[in-house]
Every structure is written in C-alpha cells, then in structure tokens.
Write a protein that binds this DNA or RNA. Structure first.
Lengths: 220, 220
DNA sequence: GTTCAAGCGGAACCGGAACTCCGTTTCCGG
DNA sequence: CCGGAAACGGAGTTCCGGTTCCGCTTGAAC
C-alpha cells in the first residue's frame, strides 16, 4: 500500500516541509529526498495505525529504511509527523463520504454502509477513534484552542459540510428523524469507533440500536 | 472526599498489601502505616481522575504527603495501584446501579438518570471511559486474557447481573424494545463516556438518539 | 523508658524514547 | 567529471518517569 498519497494536501505532500505558511515558492526537494519523505509517510501511516500514539520514531525510520535523522529532517517532531498523518486520514474520510455516501441513491443504505466502514477503519487503524473523536469534539465555536493534534479548521468544516449535505438528502427522502442535524452525526461515529476499540465484538448490535434511534419518529 | 472506602473489597482496603492469595491471617498494619495507605489511595484516586493513565507516582506521593518509597511499599508497581483504583471505581458503579437504578420504580427514568450519571462521572474522572470500555469489551467468553488493567471477573459478572435485572424489569414494564439484552447496555455506556471524553458539549443530544433507539419498536 | 522491627523519605538509579550532531555519502549544475 | 550543497545515518545526548536502596524515624511490646 504505497503512493496512495498523490491526492493529499500540500502540507503533507512530497514537497519541502513547510517552514512557515506564506513563503510559497519552496525550492523542490532533491529527488532522493522526496522519495525518502514519501517512504517516511508510508511507514508512519503503518506504524501509527498499529500502535496509535505509542508509535516509536525509531520504528518508523526502520520501516522506511531510513535513519532517524532523516525522519527528523522532514518532521521536526513526532507530534508534527502525527499531525501530518492525521490530516491524511481525515482527508481519506472526507473522500469516502463524498464518494460513497453522497452518491448512493439510497441515503439510508449509505448510512448503514458508513457505520460499517467506520468500524472497519477502527479495526485496521488503532488511531482512528481518536481522529473521529477530535472531529466530534471540534464543536462549532470551539475552533479557538486547536487541541494537541487535530486536523485543520478547514478540514473539519469541509467534512461537516458534506455531512450536512447527506442529512438534507436523507431528510428529504424521509428516511431519518425530522429533527436530525449534521452535528448529531460525528458523536455517533466517535461512539462506534470507541466501541470497536474497546473490543466489543458484536458492535453491529450497537449500530442497530443507534440506527433505530435515527429513524423517523413514529407519528404520535 | 476521604474515607469513603470502608466498603471496598479487601484487596484495596487498609490492610496489608496482599503478598499472595491464600495466606489469610496477615498481621494488621501498624497504625501510621494504615493511615498512610489510606492517604495514598485517596491521592491516587484524585490524581488518576485528573490525569488518567498519565498520572505520575511522584505526584501521588506528594499529594498523599508521603515519600515515593511509601507508595511503593504498599503497591509494588504503578500498575498495581491503578488496578486497585479501577476496582474501587468499578465497585462504585455497581453500588450506584444497585442503589439508584434498580430501586427506581420507573425503569425508564432510571435509564435516563444512569446515562446522566455516566456522563457526569466521565466529566469528573478522566479514567472513566477506559473503565467502562473495559467492561463493555469484557465479552462473555473473553475472560481468558485478563487484559492490562481491569476489574476482576467476579466484578464484571456482578455488574452484568445487575444490568440483566434492570433489563428484565424494564421489559416487564414494556418501556424498552422487546429484544433488549443485558449485553447491549455496556457498549452504550462506553459510547457515551467516550463522547463526553471527546469534548462533545451537547452529549445530551446523543443520549436522546440512543434512548429513542432503546424504546419499544412500534408495532409494524 | 528501652529496644528494635516496621515503616519512612527521597536521592539516586535505570531504561526507554524523543531528539541532536557531525562525519560521510549522494545528487546535480556547470 | 568535479565541487560543494543537500541529504543521509545512526551513535550519542537528554529528558523523563518508574523503581530501588538505605540511613533515619517511630510505633508498640515489654
């Protein structure tokens, strides 16, 4: 699973690590350096998904076939590397939602599939719950602090927008409760991810209950 | 908030730290030692609830007004201290369920209150989500490994029993879906705790959705 | 009051993991 | 093909936090 990364945003791309925003020309990296940067990102993705925040820099360097020094030349700190990975993951989520969830002609089925996908993601990536949790916790007006890790404000708003679009479609189709709001959804995904993370084998059962909670309220 | 601990199980009580199970007589601790052990447990409770697993032994010792050495004489390892605290918390949960949830004449209201309580607990104890997650993940036949931390098998089964009792009452009263099982509940509490942990301010909204999912299914 | 084992404090130890430094290697413009 | 700037590697440094050790203090049995 390599080079699935061409479509990611500049800040994590195979160009020079941004010393600061604003200076755009950025002489491109030397050929080997660019290659290494890509290898590092791939390795980091792998190691973070296996060990979550306990991933070790040495291990990442080893899997990238590179010295630690090289890792640190590209990402001055473990934190910054983690952020880059989180941003990639976040974009992957947005991609999926846009591609799979918004194009499905049946919004309810799209919802079911999205929960399924969320659970699978958590199963294969130990850091997933935290990412989704970040999104859920990034409430509307909470953009001030910009917690420890976390995707950018634009990323959060983008995904929230996609979610809102789905909610509209679903409500129009009458398949969900009439009072559903876009902001209701992220916490539910975060919840599912954490359930899977906790090792609950029968997470589908929890999904079933939540889905029932999302259905249109019966006319009184 | 001191000495709320008389009712906890022996292994965390103010008696000698168990060198092994089986040797029961256990000369009682010297008076000052017993006092210190209690102070340590109180401090640990406090620090763990503030910092979760990042709690530091030195800080615990400091708040207990005791040297680190004393902490280690009572709990040979940070892990063992953490386990003691987890067991206390777990018992507190069981207590609450037995006292508040099973005695409430209205099972539905008891359910609502329990979610409320769960959220409040998470708010005041950073380690709460992990405990509830452990419970949820401790599926029926999964008692083999005995993960990293975690309450004892008997504790888990005890609480599961209480939950089952509530489910029966609620079903008898016809206030919940007919197919509800005791094992459905722990994941929902774990989910709520994690939502609150993620910093979702409007967690009541998520609760509302889940509650709707728990209501009796409308006759088709 | 004396004695001494139980208990205490906290400086020192130690391992692990993030990060730095610098001698060596590699790319690439001329 | 050469020179030197850019990049590399990985041993070494630093920091941090759990755990140990040992000389001192104190409770309690006589």
């Amino acid at each position: 699973m390599n080079d699935t990364e061409a479509r990611f945003r500049l800040s994590t791309s195979t160009s020079r690590p941004e010393p600061d925003s604003g200076a755009q020309p950025q002489k491109p990296l030397r050929a080997d350096a660019a290659r290494n940067r890509a290898k590092i990102l791939d390795a980091a993705r792998e190691v973070f998904s296996e060990y979550g925040r306990d991933a070790q820099m040495d291990e990442i360097a080893r899997r990238a076939g590179v010295g630690v020094g090289t890792v640190y030349r590209n990402f001055p700190t473990k934190q910054s590397l983690a952020v880059a990975i989180v941003e990639q993951r976040f974009d992957a989520i947005s991609d999926w939602v846009a591609r799979e969830m918004l194009t499905d002609p049946d919004p309810w089925r799209a919802l079911e599939r999205s929960f399924q996908w969320c659970a699978e993601m958590q199963l294969r990536d130990r850091g997933y719950a935290e990412i989704v949790g970040t999104l859920a916790g990034a409430a509307p007006a909470q953009h001030l602090s910009g917690g420890p890790l976390g995707p950018s404000v634009e990323q959060v708003e983008g995904l929230l927008g996609l979610t809102a679009a789905w909610v509209e479609r679903a409500k129009a189709a009458g398949v969900v409760r009439a009072d559903l709001k876009a902001s209701d959804m992220p916490p539910l995904y975060a919840a599912l991810a954490s359930i899977v993370q906790a090792g609950v084998l029968d997470w589908r059962r929890s999904v079933e209950i939540v889905l029932d909670g999302l259905r249109p309220r019966p006319a009184r």
